[in-house]
């Protein structure tokens, strides 16, 4: 499959934007300017950008507590995202959600979910609704290796398969469920083998290879759109940062992390690919990073210049008809 050079460059750009957003968010969190918790997906950008690059504008995505990449990859506005992380009135959720509960329904993002695996039952509803309304949309749910062990996942995968719902289960196996490594929490190494029990395809993908992620996702999307049902894609990747920013990470050694950073960074790998193919040169690369930094700087200014919500606004938005 020959991928279009301009499109690949654009996707590289988007991975750089995700990385820059999260790096900058991490800095502002460390400086105490972002309240609460943030969970970064640094090192997993090929999965978020790769999967979302295969979707139409009206396709649905549900993301997780580690969801900044999925939001940006689906087209979320950096300013409104940043403002939400800063708890401002101009944020996506008017400061009611924060990093863990962010959404943009206007671009099909049905929300990040703070409950591990919380999005999976909901994606079944999005898929069912597509079927009832007879549109050609698909619905993607991102979740992690930790979420894969929730009982609801079993209910949803069985239901999605028996009803042939247009769903892509995008599992990001980053090897760590909070502080618990895969080998002590999971009876299998390849979680995607569980798909066999639901009579749907389960695919293991090099999740740090953008082109491999796209190839698997395009097949799953095609299958979903043509009414053949769901696919479980397991993007093997690695969580470079702690579970949350500020996590002391006493449970793992830097020696485990370093090879992923040095030899398996999805952005570096894509850079090498694009340079080898003559699509990207160093001058262009610097401009991509500079532009991303400038966009983030603008988003941060927007957030910091935005007002906090009035305390009483906490009482709004509960019901449509109170």
């Amino acid at each position: 499959m020959a991928e279009d050079a301009g499109m690949l460059l654009e996707l590289y750009n988007r991975m750089v934007t995700v990385r820059t957003f999260e790096t900058v968010a991490g800095e502002y969190f460390a400086a105490g300017e972002i309240p609460g918790f943030i969970h970064l997906s640094i090192g997993q950008e090929a999965s978020s950008v790769g999967v979302c690059s295969c979707l139409q504008a009206d396709d649905y995505v549900i993301t997780t507590h580690r969801g900044h990449g999925h939001m940006i990859a689906k087209g979320a506005d950096l300013k409104r995202m940043t403002a939400e992380l800063f708890g401002r009135k101009t944020g996506y959720c008017k400061g009611k959600g924060g990093s863990m509960h962010i959404a943009d329904f206007s671009i099909g993002i049905l929300g990040a979910n703070g409950v591990v695996a919380g999005g999976l039952p909901i994606i079944a509803g999005a898929g069912f609704s597509i079927k009832m309304r007879k549109t050609d949309q698909v619905a993607v749910c991102f979740f992690g290796d930790g979420a894969a062990n929730r009982g609801t996942v079993h209910e949803v995968m069985n239901l999605a398969s028996v009803w042939k719902l247009p769903i892509i289960f995008a599992l990001e196996n980053n090897q760590w469920a909070s502080t618990t490594p895969l080998e002590v929490s999971c009876a299998v190494e390849d979680i995607s083998c569980r798909a066999a029990g639901y009579n749907m395809p389960g695919v293991v993908v090099d999740g740090n290879d953008l082109i491999a992620v796209r190839k698997a996702t395009l097949e799953a999307v095609e299958r979903a759109r043509s009414g053949k049902g769901p696919t479980l894609i397991e993007n093997k990747t690695y969580r470079i940062r702690g579970h949350f920013e500020g996590d002391p990470q006493k449970y793992r050694a830097q020696a485990e992390i370093t090879p992923w950073q040095e030899k398996n960074d999805p952005i570096k790998r894509m850079y090498d690919y694009l340079v080898t193919d003559g699509i990207l040169d160093e001058k262009m690369n610097l401009k991509i990073w500079d532009d991303a930094a400038a966009a983030l700087e603008e988003a941060i200014s927007y957030a910091k210049d935005s007002p906090f919500p009035e305390p009483e606004e906490a009482l709004e938005d509960l019901f449509v008809n109170p």
Partner: peptide, 20 residues
């Protein structure tokens, strides 16, 4: 539906969010 209450209510929530 199958006997899958979490999935059943999930279908309710997800379809309510998407026009049903």
């Amino acid at each position: 539906t199958p006997i899958s209450e979490a999935a059943i209510v999930g279908v309710g929530v997800g379809s309510a969010l998407t026009g049903m």
